[in-house]
C-alpha cells in the first residue's frame, strides 16, 4: 500500500464532557454518537457554508483526537475558541509529538474505525485512504511522495486541503457531501447547505477534467493529463 508523508498534518487533543456536543453543534456531520474506537470526518463551515477545515475525529475513550490540516489550524482555532464559553472543553496541541502519513489505494471494509499499535494509529477514514498518526519514535515505511498521492487522488476525484478544500468553496462544491449529514440539527452554515441539497442546486461541483482542455482558472489540482476542477454546473 503506497504510503506518503503528510507534513501539513495537525493533531489536537480535545477533552471534556462537552467535546462531542461542541463539535456536533459547529460542524456538518453527526458526531454525538461517536464511540471509543471509532473515527469520523466532519467539516467546520462559516455562516456562508464555506469550509474552514475538514477534520477527522478519533474517539480515544478519555479524549477525542482531532486530525486537521496545519495551515488551516489558526482559522479553525479562531472559529472555535470564542465559542467554548463555559463548556467543558479543553484543547491541547499534540502535533509536535507525532508524524503524519497518508496511505492510499487501500481496500478497507472497516471505514470509520482505527487501530493503534506500538505508537502508530491507523484510521480507515475513507474507502481507499488511511490516515496514520505515528509518535516521533515510531517508524513508518514510506514508499511514495505526497506528489504521488495527489496524482492518485486526481484519478479518484478526492478533494484535499490546500487544493479543493478551502475557504473559497462550500462543502458540496469541494466534494465533501459525505461529510454533510442529511438530517442533523442546526450548525453554522446548515441553512445554506440544506437549501442547496433540498433544491438540488449546488452551484459548483468537483470533477476530473482533461488538463489541456479545461478552463485553467477552474483547476484546483493539476495532474499530468487529468486534473481536478471545481466547475459551475
Amino acid at each position: 500500500m503506497p504510503t506518503a508523508p503528510y507534513l501539513d498534518g495537525h493533531l489536537s487533543v480535545w477533552r471534556g464532557n462537552d467535546v462531542l456536543s461542541f463539535i456536533d453543534g459547529l460542524s456538518t456531520n453527526h458526531v454525538l454518537d461517536l464511540k471509543e474506537g471509532q473515527f469520523r470526518l466532519t467539516t467546520f463551515t462559516t455562516a456562508q457554508a464555506k469550509v474552514i477545515d475538514r477534520v477527522g475525529l478519533f474517539h480515544m475513550g478519555a479524549f477525542v483526537a482531532v486530525f486537521s490540516h496545519g495551515p488551516y489550524w489558526k482559522s479553525l482555532f479562531a472559529h472555535i475558541s470564542p465559542r467554548i464559553l463555559g463548556q467543558d472543553v479543553t484543547i491541547s496541541n499534540a502535533t509536535e509529538n507525532n508524524n503524519f502519513f497518508i496511505q492510499f489505494g487501500v481496500e478497507s471494509d472497516d471505514v470509520g474505525t482505527f487501530s493503534s499499535s506500538e505508537g502508530t494509529t491507523v484510521a480507515h477514514c475513507m474507502p481507499h485512504i488511511n490516515y496514520i498518526v505515528a509518535s516521533k519514535n515510531s517508524e513508518v515505511q514510506v514508499d511514495s511522495s505526497i506528489s504521488d498521492f495527489h496524482e492518485w487522488r486526481v484519478d479518484h476525484v478526492i478533494p484535499w486541503q490546500g487544493f479543493e478544500i478551502s475557504e473559497k468553496h462550500h462543502a458540496f462544491a469541494c466534494g465533501l457531501a459525505d461529510d454533510v449529514h442529511p438530517a442533523k440539527g442546526c450548525y453554522i452554515g446548515q441553512e445554506l447547505l440544506t437549501r442547496m441539497r433540498t433544491r438540488g442546486k449546488m452551484g459548483r461541483e468537483l470533477i476530473c477534467v482533461d488538463t489541456n482542455q479545461a478552463s485553467q482558472k477552474d483547476i484546483t489540482t493539476r495532474g499530468l493529463s487529468k486534473s481536478l476542477a471545481i466547475v459551475r454546473l
Partner: peptide
C-alpha cells in the same frame, strides 16, 4: 496516540472573554 504523547500535551489557551 497510544504512545502517551497525547496525554502529555499541554492545553492551549482558548479565548477568555472579559
Amino acid at each position: 496516540m497510544d504512545c502517551g504523547t497525547c496525554e502529555t500535551a499541554g492545553p492551549v489557551q482558548v479565548m477568555q472573554p472579559e
